[in-house]
Design a protein around this nucleic acid. Structure first.
Length: 734
DNA sequence: AGCACGCCGACT
DNA sequence: GTCGGCGTGCTC
């Protein structure tokens, strides 16, 4: 018998390129397995979970090497086709091993491969018919009668693993279920529907126009919804989602990590009155799986989640929404480096439904796509409720005396606002007391032993910390180099700013909001509560303050240091600074009081800062796009970055040199390789890092090149001795 | 990624 | 004499 048997081609959940062939499970007929099924397979000396991608393939290795699949998981229930398509497309686009892409895209519970990975938790409760049954008439079925009585006492239902259920209750409950007297519901507060409480708000003309444009799109269509803070983007989303629901479709809403709050979810639930599944990183695995299953089964009509929720299967998608689409947290920064935003667009295309990207400060990528006609632009110009835009003023701090980074003008304006009983917000994107500690005697500076970085002074905790690795140490009392006692903290951090303001404005309550003051659970919420009850006069904070939260009593916003974004090694720093400035500015002056934004800079004449101030984000973006085009940077070109790291500085360079040599041999016209060069911070957490950049005028050319090049990188001699990764469409070149 | 095999240094 | 360092190869 030499004829070749047909085999199953499996993506094994391991970080390996290539697929693996297996014989069908023993004693199984072809009806028992199909594409999309999760299987357990022997792999090397252990076993792994894999996903069947093809049935009936001809084996790619000698038959005697083939082993049979050990078991079919999920009772033979395959992963939905939309999920398979999306993950395969994404693994292809990002040139990432397919098995690892599945491992990232699936909830961890499905990665692990327990025999049945359906969520165990659900509730039993009486149906209408069941509550009408007279249990005492069931003398011949005492167990059923007992359970009916039990559930009658808990009309909201009983968790299936509740200890009050007697042993063997499951069989009895199933019998009752078959009679239609009891039912099981997912045991998840976020999946339970409540009647809609909030009525829809009336739309203004711009909102109506936006809604109409999206509803009028036939099949796939991508829309860029531009609206300043408070212009009512969420209201547009709600109308679109509501329309999808009315057609029996589901909706997927992606939010940045920091934007997905309990309030956001509640707003959707209360308005729509449907089952909303929530997916974010803080979820327990069981809850995550439950939400995933609820979406897959169509039980959850709306799915709200962060980046990874883009992989949640839905049988009837009707609309995709990505809010704050410019936010960097949509791009995964390690492992499978996908963009949740870009995949949402791809997914909408595959599903043939519209996708809406919303932002007050759209990414240059999305604006570029809009200018090319790939996305349709929708504007929401006005602030709902008629609040006026804040005035923006640049404070030239050259030759000014600064007190902990604050100019005299800014201090005076703070005093004015406070005397009017208003709140002030100061933005400084650097936490800690000071970014450096130096010896006034000998010039020694406190540097991290494992990174090319200085240690940050944390004065209250009396510690020096590295913000790039876990290193920390007590604040020294004297210079370790010369023994000098005059150690000085140099530069400004939020902690120092807080202290200075406290001294400057005694009796005023200064609140600092950064990663250090919000580490405790609920600390962020508590601080926000204080702000809202008026229990704070001055807010000092990092970018945490910029995202999503409204401070109606703030009338003055100060950007303490705009310069760092103007001249950074990272080509996106300026765009990010502009977005941050506008996001922070959006916190000021709601309702009746007009806000004021003051931006401190040493470069008031910066060619991109002034259009931002005087003419707004759209003009800034146009100018920034022109500059990117001239520099050959995205979105005008497409980039891919290979990063390599090792414990010595030689290996990453050698590997990348070899990789570049291989690449140059096959490099088509219009593509360029730059590097290898050391990463901007070469040493980080004791590892040396280098990188190699690929630039292409056209995305498709880049893709074709990567397709040929990346598989050959595994064969490069040094490849095994470094840790390397490929980043397609990198968000930073760090 | 794991895991084993394999060939060279410091220890009971 | 062995325990163990991590370089190399393989996983259908």
């Amino acid at each position: 018998m030499t004829q070749s048997r047909s085999v199953l081609r499996v993506a094994v959940l391991a970080p390996l390129r290539g697929l693996f062939d297996y014989l069908p499970p023993l004693e199984c007929s072809p009806a028992d397995y199909a594409v999309g099924m999760r299987v357990r397979v022997p792999f090397g000396r252990s076993t792994r979970v894999g996903v069947v991608l093809r049935c009936g393939a001809r084996p790619s290795v000698a038959e005697e090497r083939l082993k049979p699949v050990l078991e079919v998981l999920d009772d033979g229930r395959p992963l939905p086709a939309d999920l398979l398509d999306l993950v395969e497309w994404a693994a292809d686009y990002y040139h990432h091993p397919l098995g690892d892409a599945f491992a990232t895209a699936l909830p961890a519970a499905l990665r692990a491969g327990r025999r049945r990975a359906e969520p165990g938790g659900y509730r039993w409760r009486l149906t209408c018919a069941g509550s009408a049954v007279d249990a005492s008439a069931f003398a011949r079925a005492p167990r059923q009668a007992a359970l009916l009585r039990l559930l009658n006492g808990h009309l909201q239902g009983m968790a299936s693993d509740a200890p009050v259920f007697p042993r063997g209750a499951l069989a009895t409950l199933r019998r009752l279920e078959a009679k239609g007297w009891v039912e099981r519901r997912p045991d998840d507060p976020y999946v339970t529907a409540e009647p809609a409480q909030d009525p829809p708000l009336p739309l203004n003309p711009a909102q109506r126009c936006a809604v109409a444009a999206v509803l009028g799109s036939e099949g796939f269509g991508a829309f860029l919804l531009e609206g300043v803070t408070g212009s009512g983007k969420t209201e547009v989303y709600l109308h679109l989602v509501s329309d999808a629901l009315s057609r029996g479709r589901q909706a997927l809403v992606l939010l940045p990590e920091i934007g997905l709050t309990h309030q956001t979810v509640e707003r959707f639930r209360k308005r729509l009155g449907v089952r909303v599944a929530v997916l974010h990183s803080a979820l327990a695995e069981r809850e995550r799986l439950r939400a995933w299953c609820a979406a897959r089964d169509g039980d959850a009509q709306v799915v709200i989640g962060t980046r990874s929720a883009v992989f949640v299967p839905m049988p009837r998608p009707g609309i995709f929404i990505v809010d704050e689409e410019h936010d960097l947290s949509f791009k995964q920064q390690d492992g499978f480096r996908y963009s949740g935003r870009d995949l949402a667009v791809m997914r909408a295309r595959q599903a043939g439904v519209p996708v809406v990207l919303g932002s007050a400060t759209p990414s240059l990528e999305s604006l570029h796509n809009a200018l090319r006609g790939r996305y349709q632009r929708l504007h929401l110009p006005e602030r709902a409720g008629g609040a006026r835009h804040p005035t923006v003023r640049v404070l030239d701090v050259r030759r000014q005396t600064l007190d902990s980074g604050l100019s005299q003008t800014l201090i005076e304006e703070i005093a004015h606002a406070l005397s009017r009983g208003e709140q002030v917000l100061l933005f400084l994107n650097r936490r800690g007391y000071a970014p450096a500690l130096l010896c006034h005697e000998c010039g020694w500076v406190a540097a991290c032993a494992r990174c090319d970085a200085l240690l940050t002074v944390h004065r209250r905790e009396r510690r020096l910390r590295c913000h790039h690795c876990a290193a920390e140490q007590p604040l020294p009392a004297q210079c370790p180099a010369c023994g000098g006692l005059d150690l000085q903290a140099a530069g400004q951090g939020t902690e120092r700013l807080e202290q200075t303001l406290q001294e400057r404005f005694p009796g005023r309550r200064v609140l600092r909001i950064d990663r250090d003051t919000t580490r405790r659970k609920h600390a962020f919420r508590d601080l926000l509560d204080q702000v809202h009850t008026g229990d704070a006069d001055i807010l000092v904070g990092t970018q945490m303050l910029a995202k999503g939260h409204h401070f109606p009593m703030v009338t003055l916003v100060g950007i303490v240091d705009a310069d760092r974004g103007l001249f950074s090694a990272d080509f996106r720093a300026l765009e990010r600074m502009a977005q941050l400035i506008l996001q922070v500015a959006g916190r000021a002056g709601r309702a009746e009081k007009r806000g004021q934004v003051l931006i401190q800079t040493h470069h008031p004449e910066h060619p991109l800062l002034s259009p931002l101030i005087t003419e707004g984000y759209a003009h800034f973006a146009e100018a920034a796009l022109r500059e990117r085009t001239q520099a050959g940077l995205p979105p005008d070109t497409s980039l891919a970055l290979i990063r390599a790291e090792a414990s010595g500085s030689e290996l990453p360079r050698l590997f990348l040199e070899e990789a570049a040599a291989v690449g140059r041999e096959m490099l088509p016209q219009g593509l360029h390789l730059f590097g290898p060069v050391p990463a901007p911070m070469e040493r980080r957490a004791g590892r040396y890092r280098a990188q190699l950049l690929v630039q292409a005028a056209r995305r498709s050319d880049l893709q074709r090149f990567l397709q040929a090049w990346v598989p050959r990188l595994d064969l490069v001699e040094k490849a095994r001795r470094v840790r390397w990764s490929l980043d397609v469409d990198p968000m930073d070149l760090m």
